[in-house]
Amino acid sequence: MESIGVLMTNPMNSYLEQELSKRVNLFRFWKVPEPDRAQFWLRTPPPSAPSSEAPLRARTRPSSTPCRGSRSSPTSASASTRSTSEKGIRVTNTPDVLTDCVADLAIGLMIAVLRRIPECDRYVRAGLWKKGNFRLTTKFSGKRVGIIGLGRIGSAVAKRAEAFSCPIAYHSRTKKADSKYTYYPSVVELASNCDILVVACALTEETRYIVNRDVINALGPKGYLINIGRGSHVDEPELVSALVEGRLGGAGLDVFEKEPHVPEELFKLDNVVLVPHVASATEETRKDMADLVIKNLEAHFSGKHLLTPVV
């Protein structure tokens, strides 16, 4: 596979980078100087072995696009699947290997927000405990958890939350025949009937801004939003104003609309927990994801079936 050119769009994982560079001719797009980037795409492919200076548009066109964009369903936010499909470009993702990790973080964020653990930690580190006891927090066990998208990740969140005696309800395009959880046909109804709303669906045209002003108001000042999906699932300016005005109880956010930029109004709030898109960010899971990327590439270039195809 040494002669195969693979474009890596941005630095992801050093293990993946290292393993790919052992196997293929790896182009690191972020290392291309800014002024040359527009040109980068237009250059003609070199006649034989491409070098890192003479990239790609490719000896092989980008034929398999490994993507960790899609977490829970076979639609990918980062790769425009419709256009790739039309051009005959295959797309793969890394499902399953990160399910547990994302669900773990979702529960971690719920407890962190309700029990105010990061605020507690700031309080102690700032030496404030000596001046008085910390305020009361909110009980987590038994809170009603509403899940948008009961796919792999949503189900893993539900399974964990059940161990905290949380009643589970969900919204998805269709009612799951084999699910014991309460189904709501609309997100507003789900939000009105839960204390903690978790976004665990894939980002598609239908789910963009699925958490809008109406949903936030239905969740209310005693409600909490947890987003481990994508930033664009939530109308971010609406969320920020609801949090600032106290119309929403709190939020635990792993994703944002314009990462790595997070609305600065949130930095001052104690009822939010902000983490930098780390739902799958563990040593073990990132390695599993990288291995799956490599296996998909190897399968494609040896003419075998892709392991986890999206398109």
């Binding site: 973080l105 971690g108 407890i111 653990i117 990061p118 700031r122 983490v275």
Partner: peptide, 8 residues
């Protein structure tokens, strides 16, 4: 979870 996943 906070310690392992570095939430705080």
């Amino acid at each position: 979870i906070d310690v392992l996943r570095k939430i705080s």
